[in-house]
Design a binder for these strands. Structure first.
Lengths: 118, 118
DNA sequence: TACATACTGAACCATATAGTTCAGTGTTTA
DNA sequence: TAAACACTGAACTATATGGTTCAGTATGTA
């Protein structure tokens, strides 16, 4: 089996922190697309779209291939496994914390709140 | 039931894109902590740590409360639900894409690669 | 060959991030 | 009351991001 080493979570979470890029992933989930078609769909210059695709590519979420003058973008094979694992592990952490501390938290909520209106 | 509206995914994914901040979440999963203790643990100035905590707070991942001169940080009640949902939904997208296109992809891999060594 | 298409790269802009130092303010404690 | 502690805010630095325009290069087509 080929190993798909995930680039650090820094890169993928940063890539996912932009709505346009999440939209690109959405779109590539439907069909592969050229830079031009993505730029049209997201109302952006070619150059701007190219940068977004590069961010996704550095994160390993998208792969591209140029054939002739067209660069085709598709979802990267490595997927979102590492990200899902981090999120799930820490989701459990959150939950465990609240089971243990539920009463303390509600007590804190009953007390006066810090910085009522900044 | 109280509704915990998640700040946009932009903010939470951006918050998670930094290793120090993921470490802070890790740490708060073990026990609540003051800014000072976190700053010590991550070898950073108080001011620097305060900024990280603010990023996590804006994303709704951490809540803080100041009592006396100590600001205590803990995991936010809203958890990572919205993020987990986005990731899971799109993980399926990735997989579905590869089931459909597995043969096409392996064909593309057999062809010459674009930009062999940049 | 000439034109259109699809991308690419450099340069620029405004804003954000990750960190710092320094000078406070407010709180505890001796 | 004085000193120590915990935080806060302003200001600064260097670098990244999200976008643009403009000037290419390479490819496809009439």
């Amino acid at each position: 089996m080929v190993q798909y080493v995930s680039p650090p979570l820094d890169l993928s979470f940063a890539a996912l922190s932009d709505a346009t890029r999440r939209g690109i992933i959405d779109q590539l989930g439907r069909e592969d697309a050229s830079i031009t078609s993505l730029a049209d769909k997201f109302q952006m210059t070619l150059t701007g779209m190219k940068k977004h695709v590069q961010v996704l590519e550095r994160a390993g979420l998208v792969v591209t291939q140029k054939v002739g003058r067209v660069r085709t973008c598709k979802l990267g094979k490595r997927g979102l496994k590492a990200e899902a694992e981090w999120i799930e592990a820490h989701r459990k952490l959150f939950e465990a914390r609240f089971e243990a501390l539920d009463d303390i938290i509600s007590e804190l909520n009953r007390e006066g709140r810090d910085e009522p209106a900044s």
